[in-house]
Design a protein around this nucleic acid. Structure first.
Lengths: 244, 244
DNA sequence: TTACTGCGGATTTTCGAAATAATCAAACCT
DNA sequence: AGGTTTGATTATTTCGAAAATCCGCAGTAA
């Protein structure tokens, strides 16, 4: 009926938010880019206020940074940031797994298997280039979430999700250059097995390796894209803390 | 010159944000309250857009929750939330302390002592009711930050700060009913000593006890304010995960 | 009585223009 | 010539009204 048909219950700002997030993660909006309102208004066909709303939320997710009253920037990528992200993810994810194994019930186990199956099936259907599919990425995200959702800690899950999305951008950067990703599917199956077997220590170690190896892969194949050091062109001092 | 004289470099939205945060933490805006724009517009003397900006950011900080297109709510408090908050804080804080002790230099040690001194001096000056002072709370926050700032992890520090502020609201709730807080000042000194002595294990344990005892204190004196369980009046199911 | 439907008031969300602040460059003084 | 101030231009932030949405209630039918 109206010009825009929204999925019902979703705001326009929420829609723009999702599209911008996707564009940032896929690097259609390059790291470090200045986000000008006029440009974005054309791109997403919304007004100032709606953009501002979406931008605010992306700042919270760490995908956009605000520069005082000098506008917004796509969050830069750097080796330092990637390494920090990885270390914190390992800490959080290990704790999530531990608690989930302690607290998870049968329904949780079933849910993990269901999510793995969906991801696995789509992977087969897509063939060699599954890692470029946004649909697969969504199922991959859902699978990893299902592993830890039983930890029962909203705060832990909130932070975990934020970190997962920030890391997703780095994964995308590397998959762009690396036609065949490593045999992640085998790792996924092993992790699932150990989690369901309630083998906490092994499950934690497998997850940690899963995360760290992905990071190493990114560094090996995509670190040349980072704005850091090197030519010193678009170098920005990285405030250690912006504690207000 | 103009009606409002801003501290230069600060936006109006930032100002409203700070005032609302303060009002939520001090419970001038009670947990679970619906935040109506008309009311807030009068209260803070700003327009819709500016409010929306501030609200968005408070959602990110976890002090406000957004309900689809049905507006905003002051984040409810509950025993469950407090316990989860406490557990996650312990995890993060222990890691921060560990890394800070590994990586901190002389300047960091000096900074800790300076911050302790300022907090300690104000405490003496204010006498028995220091725990009700917003100024003291700011110095207390700065002292705890200084202990861990040398960990060098922006992500860890970001999460730590968010958790600290969410917890601050609970602390305020209890201090309202508990005229004399426990001898926190002695604990602070012990923690500082062990951190500067680079005694990682003991420092971690002291911090953990510091956090957990405060939580127990809150539960003992203020849990009757929580909306949870009991009378079952304003009970809300706590979605384990709102993963989108 | 109970469930469904359509109206009216209240509230939130979106819009685009107006006000405010920052940037850049040319002209000015030292 | 080097550095600083001024003024024009661009970009962001704020505003209040208009559009869209939600909620409660009355009226109707089963």
């Amino acid at each position: 009926m109206s010009t825009t048909l929204r999925p019902a219950g979703e705001t326009r700002a929420g829609d723009v938010l999702a599209r911008m997030r996707s564009d940032i993660i896929s690097c259609a909006l390059k790291p470090g880019t200045k986000l000008r309102f006029e440009t974005l208004k054309e791109m997403y066909e919304v007004s100032f206020s709606t953009l501002r709303e979406a931008l605010s939320r992306l700042v919270a997710e760490g995908l956009v940074v605000a520069e005082g009253q000098r506008g917004f920037l796509v969050a830069p990528v750097s080796l330092f940031d990637l390494n920090d992200l990885t270390d914190v993810r390992v800490l959080i994810e290990r704790q999530c797994i531990k608690l989930a194994i302690e607290r998870g019930d049968d329904r949780w186990e079933a849910d993990i298997m269901a999510n793995f199956h969906r991801m696995d099936r789509l992977q087969s259907r897509l063939g060699a280039s599954y890692y470029l599919s946004d649909d697969w990425a969504a199922l991959h995200s859902a699978f990893h979430l299902s592993l830890v959702v039983a930890c029962g800690s909203p705060n832990l899950l909130e932070f975990r999700q934020k970190l997962f999305e920030r890391a997703h951008r780095y994964r995308r950067m590397s998959s762009q250059f690396r036609p065949q990703w490593r045999a992640k599917d085998v790792e996924h199956k092993m992790i699932m097995d150990r989690v369901i077997a309630r083998d906490t220590a092994t499950a934690q170690d497998l997850i940690e390796r899963h995360i760290r190896e992905t990071t190493e892969n990114v560094i090996a194949h995509a670190s040349h894209l980072f704005a850091q050091g090197g030519s010193g062109e678009s170098f920005k001092r990285t405030d250690p803390v912006a504690a207000e």
